[in-house]
Design a protein around this nucleic acid. Structure first.
Lengths: 209, 209
DNA sequence: GACGAATTTGAGTCCATCCTCAAATAATGC
DNA sequence: GCATTATTTGAGGATGGACTCAAATTCGTC
């Protein structure tokens, strides 16, 4: 798409050798871990480099600034979502609404290690929000597609509204599971239950006869 | 409680004259507005003073550091929650679960202007988290109490779990309403619907005969 | 093994923001 | 009025973290 940078600020090159590509991997991995742990703001460029076993100069060779690191991570996370939601839609036809609810929750748990820093990145306040909006849009569209496979008589707008609610429920559950302040011990299970009750009630009228 | 500061870092005095008390009000009001708009991190001490029509030195006279401003705001928000949930419990007995769900949502909207910055403050990452944990605890206890008035056969632990879910739903709804990235247009209504469906299903078995 | 290109290095710049403090000013009590 | 105490002021210190860059090093190729 915009591979050779219609917009890159100052310098910042693509890696051209295997070593460079590997370094970029290590840097993004480190950034993802740190941002998942401490949040976007609290993660420093120096820390990212250090955890990747690199020096700060190497980090700035491949990323013009901190925001570019965040954007690259969101890009990758979008790709993962895309892939997983496509797989989900393939099996949604045979599921009851309640089962679909469970599969969605399970998907969240499965997906988590691959998109560790996503929620931290979505919360971050930066200048350019377009990429984040796109990520949200992809997630909602992916979930909505699965819902409509399960309940084909659901119209698209309503499917997206329900998908937005499901997405937020997944986000809350992730917060409950990962955070050190887990509200109450039974809350995660209770949230799952709400999700099942809601989808069962809401989707059933729109299933095929 | 700790009025004359068992713990104040460095300096920081209580206001002793009417002018000082008023200044503190203005400073907290300004801080709350700014933090609600931009978040805790992005709000600077200089901005807070400026919006309150004061100079930075005045701000530091009454608050030893930025965290103290946040803590003072959370304290006030706790007091508001306390008061409002108490009022809620008084009328919960006569409500059906679905009606209680609606009242809770309405309460959120009513309450919002009085606790504008609460969600920004709860998200903030600082050294001392105790006050935030207390705020969460109060909110959950307050909601749980109202739930048990409506459905007396609910045991306390389960009431708290459900309250935690309700609290998160309210938080999400607030995010949808106030944020510039409103997922989809129908999402807030859909969330309200989920809340109603869930509470109706979950509370009804525990009502009095 | 020599040349050019990619990568690494890390000291150093810049700047935003938290916080200090001593002097000036305003209010209060007598 | 005068002394005392509360409040205001704002320049400046200190720190931390984003970002730069020229020189050193490594890699790939002929």
């Amino acid at each position: 798409m915009d591979s050779n940078s219609s917009r890159a600020k100052r310098t910042s090159l693509q890696p051209l050798r295997a070593a460079g590509r590997q370094r970029v991997e290590e840097l993004l991995e480190a950034a993802s871990d740190l941002m998942a742990e401490r949040g976007y703001e609290a993660t420093t460029m120096a820390e990212i480099a250090a955890r990747a076993g690199a020096k700060i100069g190497s980090l700035y060779r491949f990323f013009p600034n901190k925001e570019a690191v965040a954007d690259a991570l969101v890009q990758r996370h979008i790709a993962v979502l895309e892939e997983e939601y496509a797989a989900l839609s393939k099996c949604a036809a045979t599921l009851s609404p309640a089962a679909l609810a469970d599969v969605l929750i399970e998907l969240l748990v499965t997906l988590y290690p691959r998109v560790k820093s996503l929620s931290a990145l979505m919360e971050a306040r930066t200048d350019r929000m377009e990429i984040r909006d796109r990520a949200r849009g992809h997630a909602i569209a992916g979930i909505a597609a699965a819902l409509r496979v399960c309940a084909p008589r659901l119209d698209e707008a309503l499917a997206k509204d329900i998908a937005a609610v499901v997405l937020n429920t997944m986000k809350v559950l992730r917060g409950m599971i990962t955070k050190d302040a887990p509200t109450t011990p039974g809350a995660p299970d209770e949230l799952r239950r709400m999700h099942r009750i809601y989808l069962a009630e809401r989707l059933t009228p729109f299933r095929n006869i």
